[in-house]
Amino acid sequence: MSGHDTLPPLWRLNVYRLALFVAAMLGWHVLTQSKILPPFFFGEPLKVFAQIWKWFSSGSIYPHLAITLLETMLAFFGGTLLGLVAGLWLGLKPTASALLSPYLKALNSMPRLILAPIFAVWFGLGLWSKVALGISIVFFLVFFNVYHGVREVNPVVLANARMLGASKRQLLRMVYVPSAMTWVFASLHNAVGMAFVGAVIGEYLGSVKGIGYLILEAEGIFDINAVLGGVITLTLFAYGLDMIVTWAERRLLRWQPN
């Protein structure tokens, strides 16, 4: 752990991080201005940021952003809730889980994105086909983690709670759920990103609104700067959501060392 105590203080770290970003942008700028990288394929940072600025200052991006975020949120919360309930239930029912486990594993190993056309047929080209795609991805992530979390509950803690007089419901609330939360949060970081993937890929494959649609439209007229602008906007929002998850994790898992 010798690297640990030589870590610079946070403010200096942040200065370095900013410097790294500026250097990367500068490199991109110089490489595309000097035509070493063709701007037609690689875009130009100034134009990309100008595009983002134009979207936000004119407000034209908001309806698209709103719909993509709504799809993401619905997929994230819906998938998490379903995964939580299913994971708890199957974790506590050995027979049901033995019965279903090969099917669940098969469903999980199926590349979910190929379901997008099916969902489009079932739910139309609007919001719900994207939400369904997102849920189908998020659900399994959370489900398997909760399932393991329930199975991995410390048997001594469980026996102790039973001896103290816990009913079945109290065991669930006081032991199983808090114990599984560690595992749930481990999966939620991935789930946020995956909920975005579901929403944007869904939009990309067929929609009339959303950031994915915006990217598709820009691609259609070879506007690489707008494509990259969309990608960067998405990245920022996904990062923001991940920070919210981290914040919730810190609050809810306060009992853990470090």
Binding site: N154, V156, V157
Partner: peptide, 8 residues
Amino acid sequence: AEALMPWR
């Protein structure tokens, strides 16, 4: 063994 609930 440790039997307390660590989240409490």
